[in-house]
């Protein structure tokens, strides 16, 4: 299996690469449209700010490439948010794979923003291994995708939000599987098993 990790100005590419190495997977970090297009699986990582990242993707014409992909694609964290239609983060028009708007968490007396740390998953889809129900994964984010008809797993912080989503060949997680110990490893394995 050939895995392409989309190379762009994201903060966590090395961590994602290390996680794939721990799974003994062959992968390439690349922004070459041909290599991405011919890979069996594509991972779209992301840590950073929405508008500058979208600008970068457009400059490299990676935006058109990503939406046209037919093989399984996994968006992580900002990657998932950029797969939506729009983000409140600097009012950014995104890729529009998911017809959702990314919203900012509103802090209150009991909840700080960013949502940082380990929180649990409630599954409502079968692409994630069943044993992940109620398991903890690591989150760091200030923006979230509301629960919608394509939500695959829900997490609660201030309000319930989409921890994972799926539409056709597009898969997405808000948390960081590469930093989520054994539960995260299981999420990556769930994605890599999809045929």
């Amino acid at each position: 299996m050939k895995i392409a990790v989309i190379k762009y100005n994201a903060g966590n590419i090395r961590s994602v690469a290390f996680a794939l190495e721990r799974l003994n997977m062959n992968f390439e970090i690349t922004d070459d449209p041909e290599k991405i297009g011919s890979a069996d699986k594509v991972i779209f990582p992301g840590v950073g700010e929405a508008s500058t990242t979208m600008k970068y993707l457009k400059e490299k014409k990676l935006n058109q490439l990503i939406v046209s992909l037919k093989q399984p694609v996994l968006g992580i964290c900002l990657g998932m948010q950029l797969m939506c239609k729009f983000s409140e983060e600097n009012s950014t028009a995104c890729l529009g794979i998911f017809d959702e708007e990314v919203k900012k968490f509103k802090p209150d007396n009991n909840h700080k923003v960013p949502h940082m740390g380990w929180n649990s998953l409630q599954l409502n889809s079968n692409w994630l291994n069943n044993t992940l129900q109620d398991q903890f994964v690591y989150f760091v984010h200030s923006y979230y995708v509301p629960v919608n008809s394509l939500t695959s797993a829900t997490t609660n912080y201030i309000n319930p939000f989409s921890a994972a989503m799926k539409k056709n060949n597009f898969y997405a997680v808000q948390f960081h599987p590469e930093k989520s110990a054994d539960a995260g490893k299981m999420v990556l394995e769930s994605f890599l098993k999809i045929s």
Partner: peptide, 8 residues
Amino acid sequence: IAARIDIP
């Protein structure tokens, strides 16, 4: 360390 550790 990053190559081996899967927590933040």
